[in-house]
Simulated assay, not measured.
Amino acid sequence: MPLPFLTADGAFDAHDSGETLPYEDPDRWHRPYRPGPWRVAVAALLLLLGSFMLLATVIIAAAGTLGGTLGGAVASLAVVGSALRLLRTGVWVSRKGLRRVGFFVTRSVPWSQVGEVRTVQQPVRWLGLPRTVQGQALTAAPRGGAPLPVLLTDHSADFLSRTEAFDRAAGSVEAWAEEYRTAVPA
């Protein structure tokens, strides 16, 4: 079963060949990088836990208690759903704009409202926890309106100990911004 949110439709092979925006369909939302090993490991553990919970739900259903069966099914589906949502989080780009998918909130901004996308040195959160360390962050400055949150950091679950992957992802998002910010009238 293909999981389209884990791949980028061969874009990484095209990126290695030197293309800046390697996607065939720029109108579709794409994540310009692969999910990192920390994010995938946590999601795999959650899916493993969810499968054990579903097995327990089947055993409870065989015992004949309807309330326990419904509670187990809801809890296991919540764990599986949160694992899938965790894999979906990140920065997505298309010809339409920039999308930051969080665990609970997704925010899309059209390119016409994005002023500048750049990499800066600043304190960043380590694996999304309250602890901050000095690192790199990809930020987007708006052309008026509410300030945008940090898009990517080199200490996130996608890029921890993978600075080359962070540089490639930040460069790709900056290339999308450069391509489509100039195409849209200010």
Score class of each variant (00 low, 15 high):
residue 1 M to R: 11
residue 6 L to Q: 04
residue 6 L to C: 10
residue 6 L to W: 13
residue 7 T to R: 13
residue 9 D to Q: 10
residue 15 H to Q: 13
residue 15 H to M: 11
residue 19 E to L: 12
residue 20 T to N: 13
residue 20 T to W: 04
residue 22 P to V: 06
residue 23 Y to D: 14
residue 25 D to W: 08
residue 28 R to S: 15
residue 33 Y to E: 11
residue 34 R to A: 10
residue 37 P to M: 03
residue 39 R to V: 05
residue 41 A to R: 11
residue 41 A to P: 11
residue 45 L to D: 14
residue 47 L to P: 01
residue 48 L to I: 06
residue 50 G to A: 12
residue 51 S to G: 06
residue 52 F to N: 02
residue 52 F to D: 12
residue 53 M to R: 06
residue 55 L to T: 08
residue 55 L to S: 12
residue 56 A to N: 12
residue 59 I to T: 13
residue 61 A to Q: 08
residue 61 A to V: 05
residue 61 A to N: 06
residue 64 G to N: 10
residue 66 L to H: 08
residue 68 G to C: 01
residue 69 T to Q: 04
residue 69 T to D: 09
residue 71 G to D: 09
residue 71 G to E: 07
residue 72 G to H: 06
residue 76 S to C: 05
residue 78 A to F: 15
residue 82 S to H: 11
residue 83 A to E: 06
residue 91 V to A: 09
residue 94 S to A: 12
residue 97 G to I: 01
residue 97 G to V: 02
residue 100 R to G: 02
residue 100 R to Q: 10
residue 100 R to A: 04
residue 104 F to E: 07
residue 105 V to C: 00
residue 109 V to M: 04
residue 115 G to I: 06
residue 116 E to H: 07
residue 120 V to M: 00
residue 121 Q to F: 01
residue 122 Q to N: 02
residue 122 Q to D: 03
residue 123 P to H: 14
residue 123 P to S: 09
residue 124 V to E: 05
residue 125 R to T: 02
residue 125 R to D: 01
residue 126 W to S: 01
residue 129 L to G: 08
residue 133 V to E: 12
residue 139 T to E: 15
residue 141 A to Q: 12
residue 142 P to M: 05
residue 142 P to T: 14
residue 143 R to Y: 09
residue 143 R to K: 12
residue 146 A to G: 09
residue 149 P to I: 07
residue 152 L to F: 13
residue 158 D to K: 00
residue 159 F to R: 07
residue 159 F to A: 04
residue 163 T to R: 14
residue 163 T to L: 10
residue 165 A to Y: 05
residue 169 A to L: 04
residue 172 S to Y: 13
residue 173 V to K: 00
residue 175 A to R: 09
residue 179 E to H: 15
residue 183 A to Q: 15
residue 183 A to K: 14
residue 184 V to L: 02
